[in-house]
Computed example of a mutant assay.
Amino acid sequence: MADNTAKRVTLLDPPPQDHSKAPIENVLDLTPVVDLGPDVFTNTRPLWHPPGARGIYGGAAIAQSLSAAMRTVPADFAVHSMHCYFVLAGDSEIPILYHVERVRDGRSFITRTVQARQRGRPIFTTTLSFSRVGSGGTKTLNHAVQKPDIPLPQPVIPGTVKALSEAGGGPFESQKAGIVNRASYPEDKKMRRFVRARGHVSDEGGFQAHLSALAYVTDSFFIGTVARVHDIPRFSSPAELEKLLKALKNPSDLDDEDITKALKELKEEEAADLRRRLEGALSDANNENNQQNHKEVGMMVSLDHSIYFHNPRAFRADEWMLIEMESPWAGEGRGLALQKIWSKDGVLIATCTQEGVVRLKQDKPPLSKI
């Protein structure tokens, strides 16, 4: 007899998908919990738990915390910085409560803190600063890093294999845009990718919806940059690689990044490339001469995440944005990653930083468990 007792993963029953909005707007939708206070919100729909991750996708907590905070500030203020800490792994089978605290309301700047809680404990916390639009005056200093001269992805032709492979999927689509200094030192490499929200972000959502969507995607394999610049594959043991190669039957099944894997955005040609790279890595893993230099990630967890929003009204999240990631430092079991994001028109719209635990699997067990 089937068990009809379903776990409640949201505080209230989720409403039907609103097809007048982009998929990412539905994903990040919040519901006020007025019984708990005027500035308390909860996730309207279930949150995504990436395969192999300790908890929910961190970008969801970042974006929904931003969305909750923006509901408490006037429309003529826009977020310019957001500093986040991942405290505990979020459970996708339990509702999240977002508690907004109105720290300060000034004439030019507003400060908010948001705690995301489950079981009464904080799993994520962030402090956000908002500035009044135009408060800097008519005379300002202006400069920005220029967008790399890379052509935008070409539109897919309806009915083609590529178009079919991109149909459906998660709230974002992405395309790789190459690696700068691929053969150089890890600290010199830069990973590039184009990304945009699927569908059309609604006019009703306003610029706030675009900002939330941007915040969501900033956590996409961000700390993974530290391993990527060292050319360490996600699956580096022979057993893991053999299992993965056997699973590569459908090109949409896998990608070499957790976010694009779960969003089913792998292109057919990328699957072939992934197969070649994995087969090469499998050969290296089985080569006894390489065993002494063999490196494998044992633990990778984000600790903190900061976003500086430079031009919050100068972009659309449903148009192609160029992301460039690099890692200037790694050591002591941690790594630092930097990220720059440009709009379709070449405007630098955000700069992000993230530090995380990046530990390799050790040849010998630690001397102490502490």
Score class of each variant (00 low, 15 high):
residue 2 A to E: 15
residue 11 L to N: 02
residue 13 D to S: 10
residue 13 D to W: 01
residue 14 P to C: 07
residue 16 P to E: 11
residue 17 Q to K: 11
residue 19 H to R: 09
residue 20 S to G: 14
residue 23 P to K: 06
residue 24 I to W: 09
residue 29 D to Q: 14
residue 35 D to E: 15
residue 37 G to T: 09
residue 40 V to D: 11
residue 45 R to I: 09
residue 53 A to V: 04
residue 54 R to G: 08
residue 58 G to T: 10
residue 59 G to L: 06
residue 64 Q to N: 06
residue 68 A to G: 11
residue 70 M to T: 14
residue 71 R to S: 14
residue 74 P to T: 00
residue 82 M to H: 12
residue 82 M to C: 14
residue 83 H to C: 07
residue 85 Y to S: 09
residue 90 G to T: 04
residue 90 G to M: 07
residue 92 S to A: 15
residue 92 S to C: 11
residue 94 I to E: 14
residue 94 I to F: 08
residue 100 V to F: 08
residue 101 E to S: 13
residue 102 R to I: 06
residue 105 D to Q: 01
residue 113 T to C: 02
residue 116 A to S: 10
residue 117 R to Y: 01
residue 129 S to L: 02
residue 130 F to K: 01
residue 132 R to Y: 00
residue 137 G to C: 09
residue 138 T to Y: 05
residue 142 N to T: 09
residue 144 A to F: 05
residue 149 D to F: 03
residue 151 P to Q: 08
residue 154 Q to A: 14
residue 155 P to R: 04
residue 162 K to E: 15
residue 165 S to A: 14
residue 165 S to M: 11
residue 169 G to P: 08
residue 170 G to Q: 08
residue 173 E to C: 03
residue 179 I to R: 08
residue 185 Y to G: 00
residue 188 D to S: 15
residue 188 D to T: 10
residue 190 K to E: 15
residue 191 M to D: 02
residue 193 R to K: 13
residue 194 F to C: 03
residue 200 H to T: 15
residue 200 H to I: 13
residue 206 G to L: 01
residue 207 F to W: 04
residue 208 Q to K: 07
residue 209 A to E: 03
residue 210 H to E: 09
residue 215 A to K: 03
residue 219 D to V: 04
residue 221 F to M: 03
residue 227 A to P: 05
residue 228 R to E: 07
residue 237 S to F: 10
residue 245 L to A: 10
residue 253 D to S: 13
residue 254 L to M: 07
residue 259 I to W: 12
residue 260 T to Y: 05
residue 262 A to S: 07
residue 269 E to G: 00
residue 270 E to W: 04
residue 287 N to C: 09
residue 287 N to R: 02
residue 290 N to K: 10
residue 291 Q to E: 09
residue 296 E to A: 15
residue 298 G to D: 12
residue 304 D to E: 12
residue 306 S to L: 08
residue 307 I to M: 14
residue 308 Y to A: 11
residue 312 P to G: 14
residue 316 R to W: 06
residue 318 D to H: 14
residue 322 L to D: 11
residue 326 E to Q: 14
residue 329 W to G: 05
residue 339 Q to G: 01
residue 339 Q to L: 15
residue 340 K to N: 13
residue 349 I to R: 03
residue 351 T to H: 11
residue 352 C to L: 06
residue 354 Q to E: 12
residue 355 E to I: 02
residue 356 G to I: 07
residue 357 V to A: 11
residue 362 Q to N: 05
